[in-house]
Amino acid sequence: MSGKADAAISIRSVSKYYVSGNGKKTKALDSVDLTVNRGEFVSIIGPSGCGKTTMLKMVGGILGWDHGEVEVLGKAVEGPGPERATVFQSFALLPWMTVIDNVSFGLKVRGVAKPERYNIARGLLKSVGLGDFEHAYPRQLSGGMQQRVGLARALAVSPQVLLMDEPFSAIDAQTRLILQTDLLDIWSKTDLSVLFITHAMDEAVFLSDKVVIMGARPGHVTEVIDVDLPRPRNEATRRDSRFVELTGRVWDRLRGMITDPNADVAA
């Protein structure tokens, strides 16, 4: 059975178990359903251990699952594929390679010749604002700049689906706001579908068309909030009363999960 024709990512009643060291089976995901339509920006937010990164890795073809179906662009996921690219939380740049070699890594893997992959990489470096840094090494760049390289590397393989695993969580708060706006700028010029994992509520609301809230033990989807803020979004969006209201709604849902149930008894 195939998903809707316009679905970029389709996750249907997926469950996953972990087997720990002592042989005990733990349910990590419980019958999760999630759809990302083509061109849509969807964020997943939830407490630690809710399985949001696990889900991203399943879509990326890095991790398997036990029940249910995961499809990307109507095809069942069987491993990593050229139509998907991932941006990692810890950047995952190769420290011995220059910026341009890092950006063209995915193209090298696919056998693109050096002049051509450098051409593509240069264009992307410009679009993420790092045109002057192609010969720098990752350690010479700030965290924000390193993640721009990570983004350029993912975009270089011209994916249709972009998977972002808490990409801005290791970056300071001010730089993070600028990266969010820049990401939306780049995304608006493409027809990319994005699945974005985050811990930050304002980030999820600011970026997304849909915010998926997940709960833990076992991981499950609690609610999907549609973000009806107009695009293009910019700094004014952050002061919009609707933005504040939606962020508050996400917080209301999350607060209940994060608060220790025993805390009520103690209080």
Binding site: G61, I62, P80, G81, A85, F88, A92, L94, F105
Partner: peptide, 22 residues
């Protein structure tokens, strides 16, 4: 760092290529 090998895998690198390049 396992993140680096995971990165290479996600871009479709073969085992040999991951060994050589990462």
């Amino acid at each position: 760092d396992p993140v680096l090998t995971e990165m290479a895998f996600s871009f479709g690198a073969s085992r040999l290529m991951t060994l050589r390049d990462v």
